[in-house]
C-alpha cells in the first residue's frame, strides 16, 4: 500500500492537474450535446484533492471511497479515473453514447464508481452506511463524500448527517461544494436561512471547517489539521463554472455544451486559474 496521505501536498502540481482536467472535460463537451460542465468545474479542486492527496492507492486499488453524491459533477471523476487508467479513453469517447458505459450521472458497477447517484440527497445515507460498515469490520477505509449545496436542502441529507454524528463516524469526510447555485436560483437569495450551513453540521455533532474550494492546498490542509473523533465537513466555497469567464455564475452552463467558438475561448482562458 502506497501511503499518499501525508502533510506534503504539491499545490502547484494540483493547479496543473486541475487545468488539465478542465480542458479534458471541455474536449469531451465537443462530442455530445449536453453535459454538466459547470458543476464539475466547481468541484474540480475538491475531487482532485480527494483522489490525489487523500485517498490511498495501490495501483488501481484503494481501501478508501469517494462518493459523488452530486452525481451531476461526475465528469471530473471520469477524467481523473481515465488518468489513473481505471477508465479507458474509449469509455470517455463513448460518453453518453450507445454502447458506452458512462452517462451524465455515475453508475455503480462502472470501475471506480462507488454508487449510482443523480437523484440528490442519497449520498449522505450511503456514505454513513459505508463508514459504519468499515467500523463493523475493523477496517480503516475513509469515505470521502462530495455534496452539492443544493442537496443539503434534502431532508435525507440531514437524517444521514444526524446519524453520522450519533455514530461519531470519524472516517466520514464530507465536502460541500458551496457554489451558491441550485437549479433555479442562488441559494443565498432564494433560501437565505440555508446559511450558515456549517453551523447545521456542527449542531449535529460534526467537526467543520470552511475553506476556499478552489484552493487545493487549503482543502488538503483542512483535512490534515482536523481534530478527529467526529465526522468532518469541509464547507468549500466555490464558483460554479470556475475557470471559464462566461460560465462562472451563469446557470445555463449547468447543462449546456459550448459551441466551437465558445470552446476555443474557454481553452484560451484555461491556462491559469487563480484560487
Amino acid at each position: 500500500m502506497s501511503e499518499t496521505l501525508s502533510n506534503v501536498f504539491d499545490a502547484g502540481a494540483a493547479r496543473r492537474r486541475c487545468l488539465t482536467y478542465r480542458r479534458r472535460i471541455l474536449d469531451i463537451s465537443q462530442q455530445v450535446g449536453a453535459l454538466h460542465i459547470a458543476p464539475a468545474f466547481s468541484c474540480t479542486e475538491i475531487v482532485d484533492v480527494v483522489y490525489n492527496g487523500l485517498m490511498r492507492w495501490d495501483g488501481e486499488d484503494t481501501p478508501d471511497v469517494i462518493l459523488m453524491s452530486k452525481g451531476h459533477g461526475c465528469m471530473i471523476q471520469y477524467v481523473i479515473l481515465e488518468e489513473k487508467g481505471i477508465l479507458l479513453r474509449e469509455d470517455l469517447d463513448l460518453y453518453c453514447k450507445p454502447g458506452g458505459r458512462l452517462g451524465a450521472h455515475p453508475d455503480y458497477g462502472v470501475p471506480g464508481i462507488s454508487a449510482s447517484t443523480g437523484s440528490l440527497g442519497h449520498g449522505m445515507g450511503l456514505a454513513t452506511g459505508m463508514a459504519y460498515g468499515e467500523r463493523l469490520q475493523d477496517r480503516d477505509g475513509q469515505i470521502y463524500l462530495v455534496l452539492s449545496d443544493g442537496e443539503c436542502q434534502e431532508g435525507s441529507t440531514w437524517e444521514g448527517a444526524m446519524m453520522a454524528g450519533n455514530l461519531a463516524l470519524e472516517n466520514l469526510i464530507a465536502f460541500v461544494d458551496l457554489n451558491d447555485f441550485s437549479g433555479l436560483e442562488r441559494m443565498s437569495e432564494g433560501h437565505p436561512a440555508f446559511h450558515p450551513v456549517i453551523d447545521k453540521f456542527l449542531s449535529f455533532g460534526w467537526e467543520g471547517v470552511e475553506v476556499n474550494g478552489h484552493s487545493a492546498d487549503e482543502i488538503h490542509e483542512a483535512v490534515m489539521n482536523r481534530e478527529g473523533g467526529k465526522p468532518l465537513v469541509v464547507v468549500s466555497k466555490t464558483v460554479k463554472g470556475k475557470g471559464v469567464s462566461y460560465m462562472e455564475h451563469v446557470p445555463i452552463w449547468h447543462y449546456r455544451a459550448p459551441s466551437p467558438e465558445e470552446y476555443k475561448q474557454a481553452c484560451d482562458e484555461l491556462v491559469e486559474i487563480s484560487a
Partner: peptide, 23 residues
C-alpha cells in the same frame, strides 16, 4: 443493531452503504 430513529430514508440508505462495504 442500529436504530436510525424516525428516519426511514437513512435506514434504507445506510443499509445500501453497509452492503456496498460487505455487510
Amino acid at each position: 443493531f442500529v436504530n436510525t430513529g424516525v428516519a426511514e430514508q437513512i435506514m434504507i440508505g445506510m443499509c445500501a452503504g453497509l452492503a456496498q462495504r460487505g455487510m
